[in-house]
Write a protein that binds this DNA or RNA. Structure first.
Lengths: 160, 160
DNA sequence: CGGTTTGTTCATTATTATTTGAACAATCTG
DNA sequence: CAGATTGTTCAAATAATAATGAACAAACCG
């Protein structure tokens, strides 16, 4: 059991390792999802550890992250006490989970910050004030647009 | 000259430091852009170094990165031999430059990889083949959609 | 030219993020 | 319940990334 990764598996894992990088997630998270994504059978921690040659700690933590935004589904396997997982393959679910867990929390802080900035604006020296105000307004415009793009992008992912 | 950052500047810099993080750019790049963004006057390396308390090397490298996707504009200042810069404030230009320099190059590699994967598919054991094929096709679907979303998102940024 | 000034590069150092593995807690099993 | 199995946590080790600063090259200036 626990053969090394096949060439195909390596390629797929590599894809998700890159995606993990873009999303600022640890490499191991990409590896885990990659292996699960291409595996016809549910896998448990032992399987994943030996396939990827990573520690139990990384595996456990990585699965925790993947579960946190629903990228992985627990599966019951008869006669085995260990936890098994399959990759969630519906993109919409994963993205929705990711946005909810990792993106939205940060957006709120952005709004708080903006009101803090507006109060600081009052203290600016008059000769710079016009310029600085224009910049802050521009920033608010960007923030607003980014907020509008997000729901659209989510909607862009059609149900299968 | 070269006073420390004001509260307002700190807030603005902090915004761009976070954005730099999301884009996997060094912190100093965010700092540099932030200071320039909120500065009514063009700034040179010395100004930026002393404002941000970072080294000349970081400043030079950071500006190089910012220039590479047009986030910063060189400005001529009469009677001063040093290079001065202002922040490019038109979001569309920055995003276009960033996508061209940092995003498109990677997309091409993705397509190469996909054809490599397809050839590996042939070697799969028959009983797994159906499943694996379905997964690869799904991956291609995702890739295609991401490619379609990008131009739309670019277009979403209206000219002022 | 010879001496400055300015910006870049890159080996070294510092910092930050990730992984490891052993200790622990929880759950099962006979 | 005692022993075994399984998953989690977290301090320490390691690896990855960014910043520093001195050496360098290029452009300027008298």
């Amino acid at each position: 059991m626990g053969a090394a990764l096949s060439e195909l598996e390596k390629e797929v894992v590599d894809i998700f390792v890159r995606i993990a990088g873009v999303l600022s997630l640890p490499r191991s998270v990409g590896e885990l999802y990659g292996v699960l994504f291409i595996s016809p059978e549910p896998m448990c921690i032992d399987d994943l550890m030996s396939k990827l040659k990573i520690s139990k700690g990384s595996t456990s933590q990585g699965l925790k992250i993947l579960r946190s935004f629903g990228a992985v589904n627990p599966v019951y396997v008869a006669g085995d006490r260990r936890d098994f997982f399959t990759a969630e393959a519906e993109l919409r679910k994963i993205v929705a989970g990711f946005v909810k867990e990792q993106v939205y929390p940060h957006l709120d802080k952005g709004k708080e910050r903006m009101s803090r900035i507006e109060s600081l604006l009052a203290e600016e020296a008059p000769e710079q004030k016009a310029f600085v105000t224009e910049r802050i307004e521009r920033l608010q415009g960007w923030q607003k647009r980014a907020g509008a793009l997000l729901p659209f992008a989510l909607n862009f992912i059609k149900p299968e």
